[in-house]
Amino acid sequence: MSSNKPHAFNPPTVPTPPPTYSQVCITPIVSTSKLITLAGQTGISSGQKIPSDIREHAKGAYKNILSCLKAAGATPRDIIHVRHYIVKTGNPDQDGKDIVDCGWGELWMEFMDREASGHRPPDTVVGVAGLAISGLLYECEVMALVSG
């Protein structure tokens, strides 16, 4: 990237989004640093059936996050902030739990232990009524900073 302007793109290793956004954006901070912002990643791939389990959504989202970060020259260890969106389902077994206890959190920690040596960046957890596509239960946004 030779420009000092943000560069938004779609890695070939994650689903192509609607034309309203790109999956990844690299923003130069200073000549030796770049801010990487990812669109919300979900657990579905192009042409794949939407899973019915939030844990499956989370696993797929983390796989897509890893692919996006790699495409931008970053790793999960470079993450500086995370935002998790969890859909209220109407299922009393699921919705009766605190949002942080719905099954995605353990998978996030496993992912960060494996891919980022246990790095725990700040995060925000938000319960929502719905996401972009009916049936989605989980979405995760990530920002990363790479220096050097």
Rank of each mutant, 00 (worst) to 15 (best):
D93R: 13
A71Y: 07
R77S: 15
H57A: 03
P51A: 06
P92F: 04
I79R: 01
W104G: 00
C25P: 07
E106Y: 08
K97H: 06
T37S: 15
C102I: 06
Q41Y: 04
P51F: 05
S67H: 10
V100K: 10
I99A: 11
K63H: 14
S52D: 12
A39D: 06
L69I: 07
D53V: 15
H81K: 12
I99T: 15
A39S: 12
S45W: 12
S46T: 15
T37A: 13
S33P: 03
T27G: 08
G40L: 07
I26K: 10
I54R: 00
A71P: 09
P28T: 09
C25K: 10
S31M: 08
T27W: 04
G43P: 00
G47W: 01
I26L: 12
G40Q: 11
S31F: 14
I79L: 12
K88R: 15
R77W: 07
V30R: 10
I65R: 04
T32I: 10
C102A: 15
G40E: 12
A58D: 00
D78Y: 07
K63Q: 15
G105R: 11
T42G: 11
T89N: 03
C68A: 15
T27D: 08
Q94E: 14
Q94F: 13
A39K: 04
P76S: 06
K97T: 11
T42S: 10
S52N: 10
A71H: 07
G60V: 04
A39F: 10
H57R: 03
S31W: 09
D53P: 08
A58M: 00
I36H: 01
